[in-house]
Amino acid sequence: MDWRFWLIQTFNGISYGALLFLLGSGLSLIFGVMRIVNLSHGSYFLLGGYVALSVILATGSWVLAIPIAALSIALVGLLMERLFLRRLGFDPLRQVLLTVGFAFLFQQAALDIWGGDNRDIVPPASLTQTAVVGGLHLPGYRVFMIAMAAAIGLILWLVMEHTRLGAAVRATVDDAQMARGVGIDTSRISMFIFALGAFLAGLGGVIGGGFLGVYPGLDFQILPIAFAVVIIGGMGSLGGAAIGSLLVGIADNFGKALFPEISYFTLYAPMALILAVRPTGLFGRE
C-alpha cells in the first residue's frame, strides 16, 4: 500500500464525510435548538431523493430538482413540527416514538408512491467526469459533494454568526428561557430550525441520490450513521457537525478498508466511548 492508497482513501473518506455533513448538520441543529431526537431524519433524506426523481422525470432538469426537493422536505418538516412535535414539549422519549412513527408512515408512503425498485439520480454528465491528478482518479461527483458541503457549511456559518437570526438561534441554543426573556420568539426559531434541518436532509437526499442511489430501506440504513456524526461532533454545534462528519467519513472509510470484518463495530464503539466520556460530544455545549 503506497502513498496513493492513503491519499485516495483519505479523499474518499472526506467526500463521504461531506455527504454526511449535509445529513448531520440538520439533525444537529434540530437537536441543539429543540432537544429533539428526530428519528425521521433518514426519511427526509430518502424522500428528498424521491421528490428529486419525480421532478427530473417531469422536467428533465437536475438543477431544478435540487431546490424543489429540498423545499418540499422543508415543508414536510415544518408541518410535522407545527402540528405534532410542538405539542409534546421536551419529552425525549415521546419525541423519539412520535418521529419513529412518522418514519414508518413515510416508509410505506414512499413505497406506495414511488414503488420499490432501486433507483438512481443521474447528475449532469459534466459532474460524472473523472479528473486524473498525479495518477489518482478523482471522481468528479465526489469533488462536487465536497464543494457542495463546503458551500452549505459556509452559508450556514455566515447566517449563524453574522445575522440577527443567527444570533437569536444561538441564544436559543444556549438558554431558551433567557432568550424568551429578551424577546426572542423561540417558537418561531424552533419552527425555522426544524424546517431548515429538514431542508438540509432533503438536499442531502438529492445529492446523495446520485452517489448512493434512492431505494426503500435507505432511510433506516443512513439514520444511525447520521446519529454517529452528531454524537461524535457534539449535538447542536455546526462546527461539531462538520468535524464529526469528517471524522466519521474518514474513520468509516479506513475502518472498512483495513478491518472490514468489524466495520460496524469500529463505527459504533467509538461513538459509545465518546458519549461515555463526554456526553455532549467533542464540541457540544452543555
Partner: peptide, 27 residues
C-alpha cells in the same frame, strides 16, 4: 458508559451500545 448520562443522552448512548451488539451479530 450509559448510566452517567440522562434523558436524551441516555437514549443516544443506549442506541450506540445496542448498535454495537447488532454490528457483532451481523458481521
Amino acid at each position: 458508559f450509559a448510566v452517567r448520562a440522562s434523558g436524551v443522552y441516555f437514549l443516544m448512548i443506549t442506541l450506540a451500545l445496542g448498535q454495537c451488539v447488532w454490528g457483532l451479530a451481523y458481521r
